[in-house]
Simulated assay, not measured.
Amino acid sequence: MILKITSDREIIRFKHGQFEETEDTVAEEFPLTIYVNDVEFATMVCSPDHLEELVLGFLASEGAVRKYSDIASISLDDHGGFCHVKLNREIPTDHFNYSKRVLGSCCGKSRQFYFQNDADTAKVSLSKTTLTPAQCITLMKDMQATSTIFKQTGGIHNASLGSPEEMIVHRGDIGRHNALDKLYGHCIQHRIPVGDKALVFSGRISSEVLTKAAKIGVGIVLSKSAPTNLAIKLADDLNITAAGFIRGDSFNIYTHPWRITEDRGASVKI
């Protein structure tokens, strides 16, 4: 069964002082309930594409899956909105209470996590990868150029992973976390190393987005929008370079600027 990502709806548009009947393309919402070893794990609302990647990335970010070989089977029921995952191992029962809020800190530093699984799975970046300003701007432009569903609906978040040379994979979803989980799941599924990649994101860099980036394992986060104060503190502590407001030929670097190097004469076409 192929699920629709968008649908057309008849609307009334007010424009130039007049009402007119027309159609608009809107993003689809799809509820997906995940069962792990026959126990209900979570229900998420998502865009109904790349669902296996979404499930795999979500379970990995929650610490239930460490590598692709942990998966014995994944069975998707697109019609009913269920995904049944069998693991090759048992996981602690506290993983099934992953949403319980716990304020924890790590290593005696300032980073604070609202969820215990975040404290357990967020990683300090060891990445030595650097980007030039031109490469940062090009990666953002490439992500936006690939975001066809956003252009149609204006209703999804977009994210991509890229190397200094090129964008590697792009995913979109109505949920910002879902878009990131789809990237993570794709990399796990295809055994793509992420430590030398940059995460490119269309939305605000919140503490939750920064934590997700740390779980994925990237060292650079690039955004079209702004970071929050807590996201900056987390990026500083987790050794992640965070850059925001990448628009036109300018951007701001908030943490670990050593990963953004001089262009040495390179120019960017805007």
Results as ranks from 00 to 15, higher is better:
residue 59 L to S: 02
residue 62 E to I: 14
residue 91 I to F: 12
residue 53 E to F: 05
residue 68 Y to M: 13
residue 78 D to P: 04
residue 63 G to Y: 05
residue 97 N to K: 04
residue 52 E to P: 06
residue 92 P to Y: 10
residue 48 P to G: 03
residue 73 S to H: 13
residue 74 I to H: 00
residue 98 Y to N: 13
residue 52 E to L: 04
residue 89 R to H: 14
residue 80 G to Y: 00
residue 63 G to F: 03
residue 95 H to D: 02
residue 67 K to W: 12
residue 83 C to I: 04
residue 96 F to C: 10
residue 44 M to R: 09
residue 54 L to R: 05
residue 79 H to E: 11
residue 63 G to M: 09
residue 61 S to H: 08
residue 91 I to L: 11
residue 98 Y to S: 08
residue 74 I to V: 06
residue 96 F to L: 09
residue 97 N to P: 01
residue 98 Y to K: 10
residue 40 E to R: 09
residue 90 E to I: 12
residue 73 S to V: 09
residue 70 D to N: 12
residue 97 N to T: 05
residue 42 A to K: 11
residue 86 K to W: 12
residue 86 K to V: 13
residue 85 V to Y: 02
residue 77 D to R: 06
residue 43 T to C: 00
residue 41 F to T: 09
residue 90 E to S: 15
residue 54 L to A: 07
residue 97 N to F: 09
residue 51 L to H: 13
residue 62 E to T: 14
residue 68 Y to H: 07
residue 84 H to Y: 04
residue 82 F to L: 15
residue 49 D to E: 10
residue 43 T to Q: 00
residue 91 I to E: 13
residue 85 V to R: 01
residue 52 E to Y: 00
residue 48 P to R: 07
residue 76 L to A: 06
residue 54 L to E: 02
residue 72 A to K: 05
residue 88 N to L: 07
residue 84 H to R: 11
residue 65 V to E: 03
residue 83 C to R: 01
residue 64 A to M: 15
residue 61 S to D: 14
residue 57 G to Q: 08
residue 42 A to D: 04
residue 46 C to F: 02
residue 51 L to A: 13
residue 70 D to M: 11
residue 61 S to W: 02
residue 48 P to H: 08
residue 52 E to F: 03
residue 90 E to V: 12
residue 51 L to C: 11
residue 76 L to W: 05
residue 91 I to A: 12
residue 41 F to R: 07
residue 49 D to H: 12
residue 98 Y to E: 14
residue 58 F to A: 10
residue 85 V to S: 01
residue 85 V to D: 04
residue 81 G to L: 08
residue 42 A to L: 02
residue 46 C to Y: 03
residue 73 S to N: 14
residue 59 L to D: 01
residue 86 K to S: 15
residue 69 S to K: 15
residue 41 F to E: 02
residue 62 E to G: 07
residue 57 G to N: 06
residue 66 R to D: 15
residue 49 D to Q: 11
residue 80 G to H: 08
residue 72 A to I: 00
residue 84 H to A: 06
residue 98 Y to G: 12
residue 59 L to C: 01
residue 97 N to G: 03
residue 94 D to W: 04
residue 92 P to T: 14
residue 93 T to R: 06
residue 74 I to W: 00
residue 56 L to G: 09
residue 57 G to R: 02
residue 64 A to H: 05
